[in-house]
Design a protein around this nucleic acid. Structure first.
Lengths: 226, 226
DNA sequence: TCCCACTAGTTGTATTACAACTGTATTCAT
DNA sequence: ATGAATACAGTTGTAATACAACTAGTGGGA
């Protein structure tokens, strides 16, 4: 139970507290490395290491000669640079897909309950693009992505939105592969019925169609993997 | 356009390449900071900064006096990156609770379908501790935590397990005092029926009881906030 | 008014030194 | 010979100092 906290870890917590308490708000320049070092009575090295970690996590942003700033946190930025390192074996992929199913199905439910006209407009737009780009897998994929993100947005739950986007990024590599092999196919109609159910505020149908859609996707991927 | 790469960033790429090319495999000890510094003809500071970043991203793991090692990269570890982002965002507690409900309810479903005898043993153990420590809120909370973690474990999905623990950490960070104020109370019976449903492999009942349990918890927390 | 050099402040890198810790080899007492 | 204490070499952690690289702003001169 004796958690040994190194100096740099203490600074890490220190900065995190400052940001969390909104003393240092988004976009604001934080104390200089020298100031923190003297304030906390430690060396600049330790301060730098803590900052370096937070930069890696996209919480902070540094500019040489200028200072260090608090980032706004967008999940997509968050993952950049790491994706090439992911080596997902099949087991892990299934875990991700299963988890995605949970999130997406519940997203459909909440979205049907709460989404506003703007959200529906986004979904319709994305669906329109899917129709338009049936033979352009690159743009089709983008439209598909936007469709699901619009649903996530309709849940009005910030966590769901973030998790959704992370899941998508995680699956991106495989997804591209998939579209190249499978093409748009039956996906179009599945999206249409989901969209209609949400527009009708029919929660049960939205859930049902989304479940089928994801389950079909999962099946396709699993078949492809063989 | 011309990305200006600092020395530490070059080391960052250097290490990443070594790992990606499997020259440094999972679990292996990588070169010491001094060796890399002399090899690359740069200062140890720059090497450390790169390593620090990769540690923050859970790619590397350091042990003082021993060395630096390559971590396994599973999607669940990957989600660790979510924590600082969520903590620093001005998320509202409701979003977290709602998301937790989604995850926990589906966990109950999957657990009832898949858990083995060891998982059930863990749940029974935790439940036994909850009974035992009804008047010791500290230990009661631990037992409660273990009960829910055992269910997550029973899903056999690494992502669910990780997300579950993250949710718990998040709630603790925000509302450490909640559980002390609420005390054991009615939670005992709710856990009992969930446990029995899972043991009976009654998926529908497990889902139903878990949903009620979480919804009651959320209500309690919301009432407390007033 | 515009331009340019200067300056103070900040991050980036290097160097050196030592502290804290770990695993292994060595030594010493039994 | 054996086991325990010790010493040692290697590694990460922290500190102090110095200077390089860069930025925004200042102020003076044309």
């Amino acid at each position: 139970m004796d958690e040994k906290l190194h100096t740099s870890d203490q600074v890490y917590v220190y900065i995190k507290e400052k940001i969390h308490s909104q003393e240092w708000e988004v976009g604001m320049k934080i104390d200089s490395e020298n100031k923190m070092a003297t304030d906390l009575g430690i060396s600049r090295v330790s301060v730098r290491e803590a900052i370096e970690k937070l930069v890696a996590l996209n919480v902070l942003r540094k500019k040489q000669g200028e200072g260090t700033f608090v980032n706004e946190l967008s999940p997509s930025l968050y993952l950049n640079g790491l994706i090439p390192m992911i080596l997902m074996d099949k087991d892990n992929l299934i875990d991700v897909l299963e988890f995605r199913k949970m999130v997406e199905v519940d997203s459909a439910r909440l979205c049907a309950e709460r989404c506003d006209d703007d959200d529906i407009k986004l979904m319709e737009e994305s669906y329109g693009n899917m129709v338009k780009y049936q033979n352009d897998s690159e743009n089709f994929y983008k439209a598909d992505y936007n469709f699901h993100m619009a649903i996530a947005k309709g849940t009005k739950n910030s966590l769901i939105i973030k998790v959704n986007s992370i899941m998508t990024d995680l699956l991106m590599y495989h997804q591209k592969e998939i579209y190249q092999h499978l093409g748009p196919r039956g996906g179009l109609n599945e999206h249409a019925v989901i969209l209609n159910a949400i527009k009708d505020r029919d929660v049960e149908l939205a859930v049902l169609y989304m479940r089928r859609h994801i389950e079909r996707t999962i099946k396709d991927i699993q078949n492809m993997k063989k």
